[in-house]
Simulated scan of single mutants.
Amino acid sequence: MKKILVTGADGFIGSHLTEHLVLQGYDVRAFVLYNSFSSWGWLDQCAPDTKDNFDVFAGDIRDPNGVRKATEGCDIVLHLASLIAIPYSYHSPDTYVDTNVRGTLNVVQAAKDLGVEKVVHTSTSEVYGTACYVPIDEAHPLQGQSPYSATKIGADQIAISFYNAFDTPVSIIRPFNTYGPRQSARAVIPTIITQIANGACKLKLGALHPTRDFNFVKDTVRGFEAIMKAEKSIGEVINIGSNFEVSIGDTVQLIADAMGTEVEIETDEVRLRPEKSEVDRLWACNAKAKELTGWEPEYGGDEGMKRGLAETAEWFTNPENLSMYKADRYNI
């Protein structure tokens, strides 16, 4: 099987992807952010049948020498390492440029020089901004409505430029709003679940009117593998989304129903984005993913989302997992 480097393997999606690839029989190298605690992030919590079956490279995606060293001997790079919290990008945009743009440059430069067979670079639906039309296909205009989304647009362009300029085999996966076990409480679904699980009847939330296309993490992970394996994906940008639009307000009700409770909502001003920075509507067209890779969501539509939310709530309400979250404070 191929040797696969997963950058950002210590994060929410990256840890699930690492586990999935190991279980599929791939030889996996997990690139995690170096720290003095020897923490591998969420990989420290992975299942026993996978924990000892991948090797770990601790480094920093901003360091070109470390990225090159990690890439040596790998056939494929799945590049997920990124800063993703939108509120944090408002007051620390420099770090987003360094991590998201320069980090991506380091990955594709190493891949080009070392002759890697394929790079799958991770984009985000946030690059589309508020929908000009729906469902959003890959030809939709790009709009930088936050420093985060602006740096992801830059990272995407760096990645695809290496395909255009040097024939580096790059594919871009563009997941819509992924949710599931292990997600940071800065995201809305874990914010709702952890507040309810800690006994809150009045939830502190931001805007309720925006709509999102929520994608369960198992579907996102399957999307990575499908794009990685599909020859037709090279040089392409591919949406991974459920093709199901739901508002934040309706999502609150779905979660409350799944957890068997009733809640009230209190608007917390600090959680509101600046007016022109809020992305009001996201709804994915996933036809291209099906056409080029055969991928389809298994958790799509209303019923699929209910199943995904039930699995997510079950994980978060486990006391051992819930204890790792600070539900009483706003996480940026």
Rank of each mutant, 00 (worst) to 15 (best):
I4N: 03
V6E: 07
V6H: 09
A9P: 12
A9C: 06
D10H: 03
G11R: 10
I13V: 15
I13F: 13
G14P: 12
H16Y: 05
T18D: 10
H20K: 14
V22E: 03
R29G: 02
L33S: 10
S38Y: 15
S38D: 15
L43D: 11
T50Q: 00
D63S: 07
R68M: 09
K69R: 09
A70C: 06
G73I: 11
I76R: 06
I76W: 08
A85E: 14
I86V: 15
P87V: 04
Y88C: 03
S89C: 13
S92N: 13
N100A: 00
V101Y: 04
V101L: 10
V101N: 12
G103I: 01
T104K: 14
L105G: 02
N106H: 03
Q109N: 00
A111G: 13
D113Y: 06
G115R: 04
G115E: 05
T124S: 15
E126I: 02
E126W: 00
E126R: 07
G129Y: 09
T130S: 15
A131Q: 09
C132S: 05
A139N: 14
H140S: 14
L142E: 13
Q143P: 03
Q143F: 09
I153N: 12
S161D: 10
S161E: 05
F162T: 07
A165N: 11
A165Q: 09
T168Q: 08
I172N: 05
R174L: 02
F176H: 14
F176G: 13
T178V: 12
A185S: 13
R186H: 06
P190G: 08
I192W: 07
Q195E: 00
Q195G: 00
N198M: 02
G199T: 11
L205K: 09
H209F: 11
P210N: 15
T211M: 05
T211F: 10
R212T: 04
F214C: 01
N215P: 03
F216P: 04
T220P: 06
G223M: 01
G223V: 01
F224I: 06
A226C: 07
A226N: 07
I227T: 08
M228W: 06
K229D: 09
A230D: 08
K232F: 03
I238M: 04
G241E: 00
E245V: 06
S247R: 10
G249S: 08
T251M: 12
T251N: 04
V252S: 13
V252N: 14
Q253D: 08
A258T: 15
A258Y: 03
V263G: 05
T267E: 10
D268K: 11
R271D: 03
E275M: 00
E275Y: 00
L282P: 11
C285Q: 04
K290Y: 12
E291Y: 08
E298S: 12
E298T: 05
E298K: 10
Y299C: 02
Y299V: 04
G301M: 01
K306A: 11
K306E: 08
G308N: 12
T317D: 10
N318C: 06
P319N: 09
L322V: 09
L322E: 05
S323F: 04
M324E: 12
R329E: 01
R329T: 02
